[in-house]
Simulated assay, not measured.
Amino acid sequence: MSLVSNTSLTSGQRRDRLAAFRVPVTVALSFAVIAIVIAWSLAPQFFTTHSPVVGVPADKLLGPSLSHWFGTDHLGRDLYTRVVYGTASSVSSALVAVVIGVLFGGLIGLLAGFLGGWVDVVFARLVDVLLSIPKFLLAVIVVTAIGFETINAAIATGVSAIAFFARVTRSEVIKTRQATFVEASFLSGGSRWYILTRHVLPNASRSVLPLAVLQFGESILIIASLAFLGYGDPPPASDWGLLISIGKDYLKWPWLVYAPAFVTIVTVLSVNRISRWLRKTD
């Protein structure tokens, strides 16, 4: 009897473990999209043989076809090639923005939540000021102050995300600091640094990961919007937002807008789906 129960328990544990590793179809498709985007950004020359800068005047404004998947622009350049080569700038700048938000926002939230007292009050007021300004407006203000380049747009986007990471990290740190195992570590003689690095930080960072993934998608949108308004690198750069901005002047050839917009939307939706899945996954 005990052998049967142990066997059934082992089988149940195996099923639970398999269920934990099971990924929904939509999440798997989202990971596939992100993998393609990352591959484009790392090695664009493996995905197209055309030049992103030099076009063929005789081929200008051609519609999508087997030769030109996304059509061609007003200078005869292959639009698919320009989208692929523009991925590196869009992805890298979004990563820079996320890193800035995580590092500075996480540090502010960690210190405010763990130290408390006047430190918490000062940082809380700073976060309230940042949250009172719309993220896109704050990004425009920062990029206007430091210069019109894609890397500056990434820095501006990261600055606009600091307050959100700070608030989430602070709330998680306060919740973790009040946990029983943290109090037990204090009573056992653990130092503040030991408790911060071994207990508080690992537990608080679990909620930051889904937010970082979500911020990555939002950063792509904000940076593309800044490039659309002319706050990014000038032509012949091929940032996704810049491609949409150029395409809007040629509305008779809608693929000039639809192609880069479609890639941007699919990428952001995929990132958002992965973020939602991570929030539900322990």
Rank of each mutant, 00 (worst) to 15 (best):
N6C: 05
S8I: 14
L9D: 14
L18I: 14
V25I: 15
P44D: 09
V56D: 12
V56N: 12
P57H: 06
D59S: 12
D59L: 12
L62T: 06
L62M: 14
S67E: 05
R77L: 11
L79E: 13
T81I: 04
R82C: 11
Y85V: 03
S90L: 11
S90W: 11
V91S: 08
A94Y: 14
A97P: 12
F104G: 02
F104D: 03
I108T: 10
L110Y: 09
G113L: 11
L115E: 04
W118S: 06
D120A: 02
V122D: 02
V129M: 13
L130R: 00
L130T: 00
I133D: 04
I133N: 03
I141Y: 05
V142S: 01
V143N: 11
A145L: 15
I146S: 03
A154P: 11
V159I: 15
V159Y: 04
S160Q: 12
S160H: 07
A163E: 09
F165T: 07
F165L: 09
R170C: 04
E172V: 02
S188I: 00
S188V: 00
L196S: 01
V200K: 02
N203G: 01
N203D: 10
N203F: 01
A204P: 03
P210D: 05
Q215Y: 01
E218F: 04
I223G: 05
G230R: 07
P234D: 02
D239A: 09
D249I: 00
Y250L: 01
W253N: 08
P260C: 07
I265H: 03
V266C: 06
T267R: 03
V271T: 15
I274C: 03
L278C: 01
T281A: 06
